[in-house]
Write a protein that binds this DNA or RNA. Structure first.
Length: 293
DNA sequence: AAGAGAGGCAACCGCAACGAT
DNA sequence: CATCGTTGCGGTTGCCTCTCT
């Protein structure tokens, strides 16, 4: 069909972002917001494609991002949610305030997956690997889908990890939530974090019992800060600790930086950070097309 | 102390969904 | 109703850093 490229590939810079580019992007977005990513780089004076700008912003520059390794509780929550949702990282991320889908995806692939394998749990099905005909390390399974899925229960796609996992299919043990759940309000992060009634998946349970991941239940479950960008309903509450500034926020400390970190609160009335900055704009997000047309 | 290998993370690519015209 | 444009998502790649030999 011939999609139009998201940008003219000519003269578009790729690769790691420089501090200067970050400054430009943050500065621009803070003052103008974004209405259309495609033109952001042009107006911001960046030789990047809009997609790249969006990615940089959402994955790295957004002020409400937490950074650093996932806590035990977050990790457990990720496993739990993965058991229900599969590789729908964005949905999982939506329930982990301050975390991005990319971050969670990376963490899953680099840490959690291995941890589960080591524990003899299939990171795809979240079931014990026991009946797996092939050796545990999933690298081996790459080309060899199990000859015949033993149970229809785990009629998960042959290689959800490697190939396109059907987005809609509820593959795993997902009770086809896509149908209705999408419209349901997200439950509060603290509700999720507050010790699910019973370990929903073997994996989550195992991990929570595993020595490597401790302290799962009692008390310490407040890790997931309520300052959620996705579930705006979460009261800013006390826990704005999620606003630890990501490294890139050196930007704000620079002499010629864009803005002082302290002024965020002023910028975004109603709690300052921990919410999408642009939600604070009148009308919610960037609107008043004034600057744009 | 140097080199090799492995692991982790940021960024890119392509597809699908959604909304506007 | 069909087409086009934009955004969002998931998978994959490549570079950088750390660890081991």
């Amino acid at each position: 069909m011939g999609r139009q490229p998201c940008c003219d590939k000519v003269g578009v810079k790729k690769g790691p972002w420089t501090a200067e580019e970050d400054q430009k992007l943050v500065g621009f977005l803070l003052t103008h917001g974004h209405c259309c990513w495609r033109i952001v780089p042009k107006l911001a004076g960046l030789l990047r494609c809009g997609k790249s700008c969006r990615l940089r912003w959402t994955n790295y520059l957004r002020p409400d991002l937490k950074r650093g390794v996932l806590s035990d509780d977050e990790e457990r929550l990720v496993i739990d949610l993965h058991g229900q949702l599969g590789n729908r990282w964005s949905k999982i991320a939506a329930r982990l305030p301050g975390r991005t889908d990319n971050e969670i995806k990376n963490h899953w692939n680099t840490h959690i997956r291995k941890k589960l394998l080591r524990m003899g749990i299939d990171p795809v099905t979240h079931l014990p690997l026991q009946e797996a005909p092939a050796p545990p390390p999933q690298e081996q399974q790459e080309d060899q889908p199990p000859p015949a899925p033993p149970q229809q229960q785990q009629q998960q796609p042959p290689q959800p990890q490697e190939h396109h996992q059907p987005r809609n299919d509820s593959g795993l043990m997902l009770q086809d939530d896509d149908a209705g759940e999408e419209d349901l309000p997200m439950f509060q992060p603290h509700e999720v974090a507050t010790a699910p009634p019973a370990p929903p998946t073997a994996a989550a349970a195992a991990v929570s019992n595993c020595g490597s991941v401790s302290s799962a239940s009692a008390g310490s479950v407040s890790v997931v800060s309520p300052s959620c960008s996705s579930s705006a309903s979460a009261p800013a509450a006390s826990g704005v600790e999620a606003t630890e500034w990501p490294e890139p926020m050196y930007l704000f400390g620079m002499d010629d930086g864009i803005i002082d970190a302290g002024s965020w609160d002023g910028l975004f009335p109603g709690g300052g950070m921990g919410v999408d900055p642009f939600d604070g704009y009148p009308g919610g997000g960037f609107d008043q097309d004034d600057d744009w047309l």
